[in-house]
Design a binder for these strands. Structure first.
Lengths: 154, 154
DNA sequence: CCATGAACGATACGCTATATCGTGAACTGG
DNA sequence: CCAGTTCACGATATAGCGTATCGTTCATGG
């Protein structure tokens, strides 16, 4: 992510927090920035290490977890359950309402793409689930794929 | 799972391994049995504990992991990535080819239902993924739901 | 300016998983 | 039937992920 886009996104995140009456502290900003700048999702401990490199001060893993919890509650960050890693929401600067988050995770390079799933497909899926006697609560889908580049290279 | 069904399933699993030229050892059989008898998915360490209770002998966690790897390779067991737990395949005694495994996980009671997803939905999903420039490799989907009972109770 | 609550630091601990080396049992070819 | 190889399993160490708890600091509003 280039510098201009980064700044714009961070500003949007700050605005988002102000609207929600929550604090977008320096540390929270830094963690979000690291995730925005990373090509791949990062674990909490990786973030702590990167934090040290990027900002010259150490941060306890505990704090990282707390900050991630905060950022997730604000839907600025998503957790990839299948990898135990975290990724910045790709729709921070979008105005539209958040759809069902669906993640395409490249098995080789770990690159992640967050896509909006076609509502009709979700509806069909929900229908199948209802017929199985279940009720969808957190419709986050994580799919393991190969990205175009890794697919071509193989 | 009742006793007759359990026995039938274990026999089918043994047959499956014989056909594949792999060994269905006593320990592997025991681990599979524990998963078949459990209402909820179990972690490797939980399996080690249950093993002790059920069969009166201890088993190292390492062995459990190796056995789980084996059972997964034989598609007798699936791993739920979002929970880091393991569950017996519900289609061991089915004759039909395995479809895309899709799991409905009850958030409250942890009960898991393995359903076969409608091929047309999968196709539509795959199509969306292709358009995003990705190529699906392991189309396992885990969805967090409430089962009928927990839904009614809330 | 002080009281309150939120954010953060520090420490400890538990669970999940892999790496590595060694041992013993089971299959296989002669 | 025996020797050699492969496979299953044991034992130990270690890394990574995450939560619990308690104490301290800091921002904010009355």
């Amino acid at each position: 992510m280039n510098k201009a886009k980064l700044k714009k996104t961070l500003n949007r995140a700050e605005e988002h927090c102000r609207e929600h009456g929550t604090r977008f502290t320096e540390k929270r900003k830094h963690i979000l920035q690291l995730l925005l700048q990373s090509e791949v999702p990062l674990s909490a401990y990786e973030l702590a290490t990167h934090y040290q490199s990027a900002f010259g001060e150490t941060i306890p893993a505990m704090s990282v977890y707390r900050i991630l919890d905060f950022l997730m509650a604000e839907t600025l960050v998503h957790k990839l359950n299948s990898a135990n890693k975290y990724t910045a929401c790709e729709h921070i600067t979008c105005d539209h309402q958040h759809e069902v988050p669906q993640f395409l995770i490249c098995e080789r390079c770990q690159n992640v793409k967050e896509v909006g799933i076609e509502p009709s497909i979700i509806a069909a899926l929900a229908d199948e689930i209802e017929r199985a006697g279940y009720h969808l609560t957190q419709p986050q889908i994580e799919l393991h794929c190969l990205c175009e580049r890794c697919f071509s290279a193989s």
